[in-house]
Amino acid sequence: MEDSFTKKELELAKSVDLCEVASSLGYTVKKIGKYHTLKEMDSIRIYGKTNWYRWSRQNEKGSNGGSQIDFLRVFAGMDIKEAVFWLLDFAGYKRTESYSTDLTLKHSVKKIAPEKNNIKFVLPQQSENNNFLYSYLQSKRKISKKCIDFFVDKNLIYESKGYHNIVFKGKDENGITRFASMRGVFDKNGYVFKCDVKGNDKNYGFNFVNDKSDKLEVFEGAIDLLSYCDIYDDYKTNKLALGMIADAPLETFLKENQNIRIIRLCLDNDGPGRVASSVLKDKYESRGYKVIDLPPPKEYKDYNDWIKSLRSKKTITMEKYR
Rank of each mutant, 00 (worst) to 15 (best):
Lys140Trp: 02
Glu217Leu: 13
Val218Asp: 06
Gly184Ile: 09
Asp172Leu: 13
Lys255Phe: 15
Asp196Thr: 12
Gly92Ile: 10
Lys281Phe: 11
Phe186Ser: 08
Val279Trp: 06
Lys188Phe: 08
Val16Trp: 03
Ile44Arg: 02
Lys301Trp: 12
Leu156Val: 06
Leu280Ala: 05
Ile176Val: 11
Ser139Pro: 03
Asn304Trp: 08
Glu2Leu: 14
Asn131Pro: 00
Lys8Tyr: 14
Cys229Lys: 02
Asp42Met: 03
Cys266Tyr: 10
Glu115Tyr: 07
Gln58Thr: 05
Asp224Lys: 00
Ile32Met: 03
Glu173Ala: 11
Asp3Ile: 11
Cys195Arg: 09
Ser160Phe: 13
Leu123Trp: 10
Ser277Lys: 05
Cys147Pro: 11
Leu240Met: 06
Lys290Val: 03
Glu173Val: 09
Pro297Thr: 03
Asn259Trp: 11
Asn51Arg: 10
Glu60Lys: 07
Thr315Ala: 13
Ser160Pro: 08
Leu88Phe: 13
Glu20Pro: 01
Tyr93Val: 07
Lys198Met: 15
Arg261Ile: 04
Pro296His: 11
Thr104Gln: 05
Lys283Phe: 04
Lys314Asn: 14
Leu280Glu: 05
Arg311His: 12
Tyr321Trp: 14
Lys30Trp: 12
Gly190Phe: 06
His164Arg: 14
Met41Gln: 02
Lys161Val: 01
Arg183Gly: 08
Ile80Gly: 01
Leu105Val: 00
Lys34Glu: 07
Leu267Asn: 04
Ser15Pro: 05
Glu251Ser: 05
Gln138Pro: 00
Ile32Lys: 02
Leu72Asp: 01
Leu18His: 02
Ile119Tyr: 06
Cys195Asn: 12
Asp187Met: 12
Thr50Cys: 12
Glu217Ile: 02
Tyr284Asn: 09
Ser277Trp: 01
